[in-house]
Amino acid sequence: MLVFDALLAGALIWLAWQATHTPGLFRSVISFIVFGLLMALAWVRLEAPDIALAEAAIGAGATGALLLSALGRLAVTHEAGTPWQERPDLYFWIPAGAALLGLLTLAAWALPTPGLGDDVRRVLPDSGVANPVTAVLLNIRAFDTLLEIGVLLLATIAIWSLGRMPMPSAPAVRSPALTALGRVLFPMFVLVSAYLLWRGSHAPGGAFPAGAVVGAGGILSILAGAQPWLTGGVRGPWRILLSLGFATMLAVAWGVMALGQPFFAYPPGLAGLIVLVLELAAGLSIAMSLVALYLAGQPPDHWGPEAARR
């Protein structure tokens, strides 16, 4: 397996170089997608199946679709060469890179050994779930997750404030297979997402991969020509779903304070239920912000033929 790891690491570095320094944006995007695939394998080799799952769902799947779609919108200005500096300023970049590498080494050196794994395992029985990663994400360090969901919400708000969504261009060729694909696969996306959410309590899974998968399903349906029933109106369902994760987490954090517990410290008997509710809310919000990021603008108040003509 040593040869495998070495080959994997070499391919990853080469792909990272390709993704940032190749002439031609399309080649960069493809290199990035393949990088995401191999990165998922690297996480498997590092014995982090949770991160491999998230990388497969977000890195290789959703981000690839976002980049490809952004590339399509850039088409007017797309030229074969990216305006990279002809000669990068080596006197700056080599010392800066060395300093960064040194800092990272120091940080890795200063990490407590043998890590926090034993501490997590000790409190795991009280956390309400059997998977340590989910316990850290939604119970022990739920505050960090609250901020992560907040960042996603902020990103969506920033994109919506830029204006209405540009109407998606129709594919050059209409294919009956595409419509069928959207209809056949969307239930599969929902099913797999629910499965991952449920599994998150005792095995790799949880809100982030589940949300990414169902968000990807939404993107695929829109690509296949489906009209979402969700609208972006002021009191529309989209906004409610987007803020659901953040609002639920805050409500839980304050609710347990009303019960006499510290901020985000769940009562032991209710921990399992609270984690499940939070995962459901966060997963829905993640899915809706992914679709919102993909649409690149505020969705119309009414979907329909008149929206497409505008």
């Binding site: 594919p171 050059a172 060729v173 294919s175 297979a177 595409l178 694909l181 696969l185």
Partner: peptide
Amino acid sequence: LIASATGAGLIGRTALAR
């Protein structure tokens, strides 16, 4: 199978149309 069949069909059709 579904992804491969649909993808191959779409790419082939679009390539011909282009």
